[in-house]
Design a protein around this nucleic acid. Structure first.
Lengths: 344, 344
DNA sequence: GGATTTTGTGCACACGTTTGCGCAAATAAA
DNA sequence: TTTATTTGCGCAAACGTGTGCACAAAATCC
C-alpha cells in the first residue's frame, strides 16, 4: 500500500515549509499573512494531487477527535434509529462523525462502551442511559467532557437533558380512552425504574384518579421475549375479566399485546380499546389502525444536537448550569381506540 | 480539563522507561523479556491509576485506526439497522468501532462519505453501494484497503460480495401466488438499475414464463414519497382491471401498497393476493398477516464480518481473488397470499 | 577466566499534524 | 538615513504511542 502523502511532501515539492502549507489548508492564510500567490500555488497543488489530511494526527495534536459517541438502548428500535439518523446528519455538517452503539440497557455493557469511547478520545456523548452508570458519566463530567442525556435520565447527574413530557403523554392517552367510553383501562408496562417509565405510569395514575377509575397494571420484566410477553398479556386479560382497554407503555409491548388480543380473538376497538406509547410507521396500516402517542423525533434530535454543540463550544463544562428540555407529544387518533364511532 | 496521563507519566512515576511500559501494556512482556517483577509492578500501577491508552496516538503510530466504515442506504430501514446492529456487535469483540452512515443511495453523498472515512483512516469498508461510485471504491481497492459489498454490488469491482439469491426469492414468491390460484400477478418495484432490483425482476419474469402468465410491472421512481407511491399504486390497480395479486419488491413499497389496497377497500387475500420482498416484524400482526420473502439477516451480517476480517488479515488485498457469497431466502407464508384456504 | 550468549532495560526516532516564536526583508515613520 | 513597524515565511517542538537498536549486567560456555 503506497504511503499517503503528507503535508511535508507537499511542502518539499513546493519548496516551502510545512507550516505554510498547514496555514493555507486550514484557511488561516489571511490571518497568518500568507501571500495570495503562495496560497493559490499551494491550493492548486493540493487539489491536483488530491491531498487528504490525516485526522488521527490532527486529533492527536489538537486534542479534538471530532467524534461523538451515541449510546442508545437498541439501535434496531425505530425510535432510536430514526433519531440516530437525524443526529448523524446534523452533526455531519459540522465535521463530526458518530460512534453509534447499543447498550441493551445493560450496566456493564454501558460502562465498557464509555471506556472504549474514552480511549478513542470522543469529544462528546449523547446517551440514553442504562441504570447504574452514574459514576461513569460523572467521571466524564468531572473531566469536562460534554454529555447530553436524552429519552431518559439519571437525575443525580447535572447534564443537559432532552426528554418528552411522558406524564402528559400517558395522561392524554388515558383521557382519550375515557372519552371513548372505556372504563376498565389497564396499563401494560416494563418492570423498570427508569424515569420515563415512572412518568408514564404516573400519568396513567393521575388520569385514573381524575376520572375515578380503578388501576390495573401489568409489569413485564425487561428483556422478556416477545412471545413470552404475549402469553403474560393473555393471562393478564383472562385474570381481569371486564378489562375494556389496554394502554401499552412502549412500542414493543404494543406489538406483543396486539398479538395477544389477536390470539384471544377479541375485537378491537369493540371489546378492547388499544393505545400505544410511541408511534410507528406501521400502526396506521394495521386493521384496525392503532392509536398512539407520537414522540417528536425531529425536535428531539435537533434539540440534542443543538444542546451538545452548545456544550462543545463552552470552555468550562464542569460548572455550567444544565438545561432540561421537555418536549410535547402528540396523540395520533386512529381506529383502535374509537369504540363509539364504530359502534354507531 | 486535567490532562490524561500518558505512558511517560507512568514511566516517570515508576522510574522505568516508556518502552518497558509500552511492552507490558501490549502484552509483549514475555516476548520482550521483561522480568515478571517489573511486569507486575507496572500492571498494578496502571490498574491503580486507571490509565487509558490514547487510540489516536496509537493509530497514528501503527497506521491502524481500528475503525470500520459502514455505508448503508438508510440506517432507519429495519433491514439495515438490524444488520448494523449485528455487525457492530461482532466487530466490537475484535476491538473495532463502527462509523455508520446513510447514503440515501445518492452518488455525491456516497463520494463525500468515502472521502470523510479516508481522512479518518478507516481500516475497512462495508458498503451497500449507491450507483456511480465505482471509481471511488476502485481507488480504495488500489490503495489496498479492504472493501466488502453487500445487499447489492457494482459488478465492475473486484471485491468480496455478500448478497442473497434475489432471483430465487422473487421466483418462489410468484410461484407461491400461482399455487394459490392467482393468475394476474403484478410486480411493483423501484425504477432502479441496481443488481438486486434487476435480479428480483428477473426472478418474477422467469416465474411468469414458467407458468405462462402475462407481465404487469409498475416502476416507482426512487425517492418517491410514501403517499405518492400509494397513489401510483392505486392508479396502477385501476388501470389494470383483473389484477389479482401484487408482489412488492421492497418493504417500503409493500407498506405503500397495503395502504393503496386499504384505500380501495379491496379484500386481501380474496380480491388481491399480496407478497412482499423483505420481511418485517410487523407483517405477522397485520390483518390479514402479510406473506413475505425473508432475508437471512444474521447470516448476512456474520458473512460480511467474516469476510471483512479475512481481508483485514490479508497482506495483499489488491491481488486477492474476490469471493461472492449468495445466501438463500425464506418464504414466510401468512394470510395475505392464501386465497384458497380462506375461500373454502 | 576469557569469550560468548542471554537477559532486562532504555534511547531516540517516527507517525502527520499544529503552533509559538524567531527572523530577514520590505515598507513606513521620523 | 536611521529607526520602527509590518509582511511573509520557516524552525522546531509537541501531541502519545510503538519499536529498531544499543548496551550493560548476568549467565553460560569452553
Amino acid at each position: 500500500m503506497k504511503r499517503k502523502l503528507s503535508i511535508h511532501d507537499i511542502a518539499k515539492e513546493l519548496n516551502v515549509s510545512s507550516t505554510t502549507v498547514s496555514f493555507v489548508i486550514n484557511g488561516k492564510a489571511a490571518e497568518k499573512r500568507i501571500s495570495s500567490d503562495m496560497e493559490k500555488k499551494i491550493l492548486h497543488y493540493i487539489n491536483k494531487v488530491g491531498y487528504q489530511p490525516n485526522m488521527m494526527a490532527k486529533s492527536l495534536r489538537t486534542g479534538k477527535s471530532k467524534i461523538i459517541g451515541l449510546m442508545v438502548e437498541n439501535m434496531y428500535d425505530p425510535f432510536f434509529s430514526s433519531i440516530a439518523r437525524i443526529i448523524e446528519e446534523n452533526t455531519y455538517q459540522l465535521g463530526y462523525k458518530i460512534f453509534h452503539s447499543s447498550t441493551d440497557n445493560d450496566t456493564l455493557k454501558s460502562k465498557d462502551l464509555i471506556k472504549a469511547f474514552r480511549e478513542r478520545q470522543v469529544d462528546g456523548y449523547i446517551i440514553a442511559p442504562a441504570p447504574g452508570i452514574e459514576n461513569d458519566i460523572q467521571q466524564l463530567i468531572d473531566d469536562g467532557i460534554p454529555v447530553i442525556q436524552f429519552d431518559r435520565y439519571l437525575s443525580k447527574l447535572k447534564t443537559d437533558v432532552i426528554v418528552i413530557d411522558n406524564m402528559d403523554g400517558a395522561f392524554i392517552g388515558v383521557q382519550h380512552l375515557v372519552e371513548n367510553g372505556y372504563k376498565m383501562i389497564a396499563f401494560v408496562t416494563l418492570d423498570s425504574l427508569q424515569v420515563q417509565m415512572m412518568d408514564r405510569l404516573a400519568g396513567y395514575k393521575k388520569a385514573l384518579q381524575k376520572f375515578g377509575l380503578k388501576k390495573y397494571v401489568l409489569n413485564i420484566p425487561y428483556g422478556t421475549e416477545s412471545d413470552v410477553s404475549t402469553e403474560m398479556i393473555k393471562d393478564f386479560i383472562s385474570n381481569n375479566p371486564g378489562l375494556d382497554a389496554l394502554f401499552f407503555a412502549t412500542n414493543y409491548l404494543a406489538i406483543s399485546g396486539l398479538k395477544a388480543i389477536k390470539d384471544l380473538q377479541m375485537n378491537v376497538p369493540g371489546q378492547m380499546g388499544v393505545v400505544g406509547f410511541d408511534d410507528n410507521t406501521h400502526f396506521a396500516l394495521f386493521s384496525p389502525s392503532i392509536t398512539a402517542i407520537a414522540q417528536p423525533i425531529k425536535e428531539i434530535s435537533d434539540e440534542v444536537v443543538r444542546s451538545l454543540i452548545n456544550c462543545l463550544a463552552e470552555r468550562d463544562n464542569k460548572n455550567r448550569k444544565p438545561e432540561k428540555v421537555e418536549l410535547k407529544v402528540t396523540l395520533n387518533i386512529r381506529e383502535s381506540s374509537q369504540r363509539n364511532s364504530l359502534n354507531h
